[in-house]
């Protein structure tokens, strides 16, 4: 039987390679759209392609973690990964941890000197951050994911969640403090 719209998610979870082929054919333009939008300022074609392949690779390796049923759920999950991987690529490429596209605000958020947060993040603490996300309430977690994994601005997050910008900033501030504490207490062994 052929891999098609009706069975590709199941097949992907079963690590069937043709399902990955199907996903790559089907979602290439969407992933490319997300990745190029984020990596656009860097104007590096190879980097974009590398990142697109990384997105599909992440989908492949983490397929079992997808919990949804429908095509729409899968699409959202894939977009979330694409955004996350693209921001990660962007940051690594820029070799500094500014949140892109947030302009002036990021200057306030991240003072020029290396902050404690920056310090730990530099030590490839993304993995740690992922784990720590579990300790937050769902709302805070969503905000922190949007902020740190997707590079959204506080305004964008506020608009999306129907909160005020200052409420979002507050939660980010508290979250960051907890994160730093968490990462530090986990120690350097985690890198």
């Amino acid at each position: 039987m052929k891999t098609d719209q009706t069975n590709y998610i199941r097949r992907l979870k079963n690590q069937r390679e043709e399902a990955l082929e199907f996903v790559m054919d089907e979602y290439f333009p969407l992933v490319k759209g997300i990745v190029t939008q984020i990596l656009l300022p860097l104007a590096k074609r190879e980097l974009a392609e590398e990142c697109i392949s990384d997105v599909f690779l992440s989908v492949w390796h983490n397929a079992q973690k997808f919990k949804g049923e429908s095509e729409a759920d899968f699409r959202k999950w894939l977009c979330a990964i694409a955004k996350y991987r693209a921001i990660d690529f962007y940051r690594r490429e820029k070799k500094r941890l500014e949140i892109p596209s947030s302009g002036k605000e990021s200057m306030d958020m991240f003072p020029p000197e290396e902050s404690a947060e920056e310090h730990v993040l530099v030590k490839e603490s993304i993995r740690e951050m992922e784990k720590l996300m579990n300790f937050f309430s769902p709302v805070d977690r969503n905000i922190l994911i949007m902020k740190f994994f997707w590079g959204m601005t506080s305004e964008e997050i506020a608009k999306k969640l129907g909160l005020s910008k200052s409420a979002v900033d507050n939660r980010i501030y508290r979250g960051k403090k907890q994160l730093v504490k968490g990462v530090v207490s986990l120690g350097d062994g985690g890198k």
């Binding site: 490319k32 939008q37 997808f66 919990k67 979330a80 990964i81 992922e130 579990n134 994911i145």
Partner: peptide, 23 residues
Amino acid sequence: MKDIYELFNDMDLDLSEFQEVEG
């Protein structure tokens, strides 16, 4: 403990913000 890929299941994304780019 959930990792980020599992957490992404709960994120509500607005798909209309993404534009497809043909390759």
